[in-house]
Amino acid sequence: MGITQAFAAAPVDINRADASALQQGLTMVGPSRAAAIVEHRQQHGPFRRVEDLTQVKGIGKAIVERNRQRITTGDMTSRVDPVPGAVPVRSVPRR
């Protein structure tokens, strides 16, 4: 059995990738959207969360959600953002 490309590819760091890497690594991101991501990053600084991509002209929630598992902001601990309003699960010690 072969590994699908989605699982074989490393996540795209939206804070370091150039336009070519963004275009190749993300679905629904062509040359103009990739260039817009790079331009936005240069003008406004690094993206803190994956959702910040929606601040880029031409990038909506659908594109972010479709690419969520392919994207990182460089900090692997915050790769998957918590759901707003969610209560964190804590382990309960056994007695």
Results as ranks from 00 to 15, higher is better:
Ala34Val: 05
Pro82Gln: 06
Arg94Lys: 09
Ile37Met: 08
Ala86Tyr: 04
Phe7Pro: 01
Arg94Asp: 13
Arg68Pro: 10
Ala9Arg: 12
Ser20Trp: 07
Ala36Phe: 07
Val38Ile: 06
Thr54Lys: 01
Val89Phe: 07
Arg33His: 13
Leu22Thr: 05
Arg95Ser: 13
Thr27Arg: 09
Asn15Phe: 04
Phe47Lys: 03
Ala86Val: 02
Leu53Pro: 04
Met28Arg: 14
Ser91His: 12
Gly58Arg: 00
Gly58Lys: 00
Ala10Asp: 10
Asn67Gln: 06
Gln23Pro: 11
Val83Tyr: 10
Ile63Thr: 12
Gly30Tyr: 12
Pro93Cys: 11
Gln55Glu: 08
Arg79Met: 09
Ser91Pro: 08
Arg70Cys: 06
Asp52Arg: 03
Ala6Val: 15
Leu26Val: 01
Ile14Gly: 03
Pro93Lys: 04
Lys57Gln: 09
Arg16Ile: 08
Met28His: 12
Met28Asn: 14
Ala86Ser: 08
Asp52Lys: 04
Pro11Lys: 11
Ser32Asn: 15
Ala8Tyr: 11
Gly85Leu: 00
Ile71Tyr: 02
Gly60Leu: 02
Gln69Asn: 15
Asp81Glu: 15
Ser78Leu: 06
Arg94Met: 09
Leu22Ser: 05
Phe47Leu: 03
Gly2His: 09
Ala86Phe: 01
Ser91Ala: 14
Arg90His: 09
Ile63Asn: 02
Gly2Ala: 13
Gln23Lys: 10
Thr27Met: 13
Gly30Lys: 06
Ala9Ser: 15
Arg33Lys: 12
Ala36Arg: 00
Asp81Ser: 15
Arg66Lys: 15
Lys57Gly: 12
Asp13Asn: 15
Glu39Asp: 15
Ala86Ile: 02
Arg49Glu: 09
Ala19Pro: 11
Ala8Arg: 11
Val12Lys: 03
Thr27Phe: 15
Ile37Asn: 05
Val38Thr: 11
Pro82Leu: 03
Ile63His: 02
Arg95Gln: 10
Val56Asn: 00
Pro82Thr: 03
Ile14Cys: 00
Ile63Ala: 06
Pro46Thr: 03
Asp13Ala: 04
Ala86Leu: 03
Arg16Phe: 02
Asn15Asp: 04
Arg66Thr: 13
Gly30Met: 11
Ala62Phe: 05
Glu51His: 07
Thr4Glu: 10
Ile14Lys: 00
Pro46Val: 00
Pro88Glu: 13
Gln24Ala: 13
Arg95Gly: 13
Asp18Trp: 01
Gly58Ile: 01
Gly30Phe: 12
Val80Ala: 07
Val50Asp: 02
Gly60Ala: 05
Ala86Gln: 10
Ser78Arg: 11
Val64Ser: 03
Arg41Trp: 01
Arg94Pro: 12
Arg68Gly: 08
Asp81Arg: 10
Thr72Asp: 02
Lys61Cys: 04
Gln55Trp: 02
Val89Thr: 12
Gly60Trp: 02
Thr54Trp: 01
His40Ile: 07
Pro11Thr: 14
